[in-house]
């Protein structure tokens, strides 16, 4: 049996951590408690969970057209992550396997994209999309999601691929496997930790991003969840709207929190792997 001694140092540390976490979580608790009140009731906001009413949620749900927005979000984020995993692992394959000046150049070329903010290029990109006559619909922002994610994902895959032994591929080659077979059936399955890391880190920012959909999607019924949140911007001035706004915030955050609750371990290892291998 492990002996648990009550050292003053340890008690102090626990107390400090507890206070700190309460401080961090406190605004979120207020949001949750206020969202459970009927609209227009923001008196004494510091009383936690003194009322339970779903009236604000119903109003927010209707105003956001929640099911439609949720579907749009799931479609675009899911498809983007699939394409990112495929394209970036493919790009990392020659970059990490061939030792030449070309592959080194390619590597740094991709990484350079990491430091360019996307707000800078958004107007020329919009022109480019117009010039290629790509229609503006819910899938247009995917182009930018994928392009912006490529540098980091390729970088990550290249880092992980160095630890996959070359001998595996050589023996597969001798057994008659072609390049694509070797990549898809031998290398990619061994890169599962990298795939988890890419899917989580990139999927998370894509799910939460409002900037590209705001610019590239014009039709109301094609908005994703973060973009429908933008219509609440004007409501901040009106205290009567705060409960509905908070309910909308909870609805917006709920899907990702649910995913996090189920896959917490993968999140933690994925985020850490993303930085440590890079």
């Amino acid at each position: 049996m492990r002996k648990f001694r009550l050292k003053p140092q340890s008690v102090l540390l626990h107390a400090f951590l507890l206070c700190f976490c309460v401080l961090i979580i406190y605004p979120l608790l207020i949001v949750l408690s206020s969202s459970l009140r009927p609209p227009g009731n923001m008196d004494s906001p510091l009383l936690l969970f003194n009322q339970f009413s779903f009236a604000s949620y119903i109003r927010a749900f209707e105003k956001m057209q929640y099911p439609k927005a949720l579907l749009n979000s799931i479609l675009t984020s899911g498809a983007s992550v699939l394409v990112i995993v495929l394209f970036s692992s493919m790009a990392a394959y020659p970059v990490s396997r061939i030792k030449s000046k070309t592959s080194r150049f390619l590597y740094y070329f991709f990484i350079a994209g990491l430091i360019v903010p996307s707000q800078m290029v958004v107007v020329p990109v919009a022109q480019m999309i117009g010039r290629l006559s790509i229609p503006n619909n819910r899938f247009t922002p995917m182009i930018m999601f994928i392009t912006c994610s490529l540098p980091f994902s390729t970088f990550l895959y290249a880092g992980f691929m160095k630890s996959v032994p070359v001998e595996i591929e050589e023996s597969a080659y001798i057994d008659g496997a072609g390049l694509w077979t070797r990549f898809a059936w031998f290398v990619l399955p061994l890169l599962k930790p990298a795939t988890v890391s890419v899917a989580i880190t990139q999927g998370m920012w894509i799910w939460n991003d409002y900037f590209y959909p705001m610019i590239f999607v014009t039709r109301r019924d094609q908005f994703s969840i973060p973009v429908v949140m933008l219509q609440f911007l004007g409501d901040r001035e009106n205290p009567a709207q705060w409960n509905i706004l908070f309910a909308a915030c909870v609805l917006c955050a709920l899907p990702l929190i649910a995913v996090f609750a189920v896959m917490q371990k993968q999140f933690v290892t994925g985020i850490a792997a993303g930085a440590v291998k890079g």
Binding site: Y210, C249, A253
Partner: peptide
Amino acid sequence: LFSAIVVGFI
């Protein structure tokens, strides 16, 4: 986990 827009509102 929260979107920047939700954090902005909060």
